[in-house]
């Protein structure tokens, strides 16, 4: 464990807590894409298949349970909670899941480190996580008004993977033959997808004006 990875995990944890806090306190999911949240629940499910078979550390297991629990409870809130669901904008959140799930699944079957079910599922979760934010970014561009919490949520989500890239660079130099190009490429693609959001986020923060994404 190095500082970059710890910072990345804490940023990731904080992003899901910010979202849960927003939904739980103001009982609203305005501006939040249910599609993206469902994709994240799928990412964590396929990523943590080994949660009960391979024990790595208490920290690792606890964090996996938190990410699984928070992503499914966010989906539950938006789908089932009688007040929150009213603020879900299903007419705008129309991104098709399978446009992302199918290509990632096909890619994982053909490009992986080992052709076993768990390894293919794990690789699938890496590819899917890289693109899971797309429905959310599309929704933000459609609805145009981004409230602070949603903006912070997306920013923290992008920042966590950028910190993971620093972690991979650090591990590359400190650990022998630590090269996993699939993880690196998926992580870089994921961070690049946030790049334009980061640009507009910093512009709005610097000019101290409301965050607006170009249509």
């Amino acid at each position: 464990m190095n500082i970059f990875r710890l910072a990345g995990d804490m940023t990731h944890l904080f992003s899901v807590l910010v979202l849960l806090l927003k939904i739980h306190t103001i009982k609203s999911c305005a501006g939040i894409s249910l599609k993206t949240q469902e994709l994240y629940a799928l990412v964590f499910t396929t990523r943590y298949l080994d949660i009960f078979t391979d024990f790595i550390s208490l920290y690792n297991t606890v964090m996996k349970l938190i990410f699984l629990g928070s992503s499914f409870s966010i989906v539950w809130y938006i789908r089932r909670h009688k007040i929150v669901r009213r603020s879900y904008d299903k007419d705008q959140d129309t991104f098709r899941h399978y446009f992302l799930v199918i290509p990632c699944l096909v890619l994982a079957v053909f490009i992986n480190h080992k052709f076993t079910f768990k390894e293919v599922m794990w690789t699938f979760s890496l590819y899917l996580e890289a693109v899971a934010i797309l429905p959310q970014l599309v929704l933000l561009q459609r609805t145009r008004n981004i409230d602070n919490l949603t903006g912070q949520y997306v920013f923290l989500l992008g920042a966590y993977r950028a910190l993971y890239i620093l972690n991979w660079i650090y591990r590359h130099f400190t650990e022998p033959h630590y090269v996993h190009w699939i993880t690196w490429i998926a992580g870089v693609v994921q961070t690049l997808l946030y790049a334009d959001f980061f640009y507009y986020y910093f512009q709005s923060w610097k000019n101290n004006e409301k965050l607006q994404l170009p249509a």
Binding site: R47, D54, I56, S57, K64, H113, K114, W122, V179, T183
Partner: peptide
């Protein structure tokens, strides 16, 4: 093994 390298990450 190859795959092992990342399994300690989240």
């Amino acid at each position: 093994s190859q795959g092992q390298g990342h399994k300690d990450e989240l």
